[in-house]
């Protein structure tokens, strides 16, 4: 699991990859906190290269969403593989975190 991020006019786009599970969830959380700044308006997480996410990973996303919400900022996901999309569907997390097909779509949705 690794994270790379770039920032454009208050929107951070971060790419995660590999497995996100109980063994590296706290690292994932620290990485996300590291890329977010108080002034950011949105965090878009590109999950194209994520192969697996466990409930421990979902919990990190939930905490991140709450942190961002506290700052008046938004969290969105994009480019999920079908099995990962299924995890969000079954867990119902697609109810609280917007999921988009591509970075472009996510950026447009956040901007609008």
């Amino acid at each position: 699991m690794a994270i790379s991020a770039e920032r454009e006019s208050g929107t951070v786009i971060a790419k995660a990859d590999g497995r996100i599970d109980g063994s590296n969830a706290s690292e994932f959380q620290a990485d996300l906190q590291g890329v977010i700044e108080d002034s950011d308006k949105a965090l878009i997480l590109d999950f194209e290269s994520v192969s697996y996410i466990s409930s421990a990973g979902l919990r990190v996303l939930l905490l991140t969403a709450k942190t961002l919400e506290g700052n008046g900022a938004k969290l969105a996901l994009c480019s999920l593989s079908e099995p990962i999309r299924e995890v969000f569907r079954i867990s119902g997390f697609d109810n609280i975190i917007p999921i988009h097909d591509s970075q472009a779509e996510a950026t447009a949705a956040i901007g609008g």
Partner: peptide
């Protein structure tokens, strides 16, 4: 079918 519910403890009022 799934019933579309979210995991408990995530979103109050659901």
């Amino acid at each position: 079918d799934l019933t579309g519910g979210i995991a408990l403890g995530v979103l109050g009022g659901f």
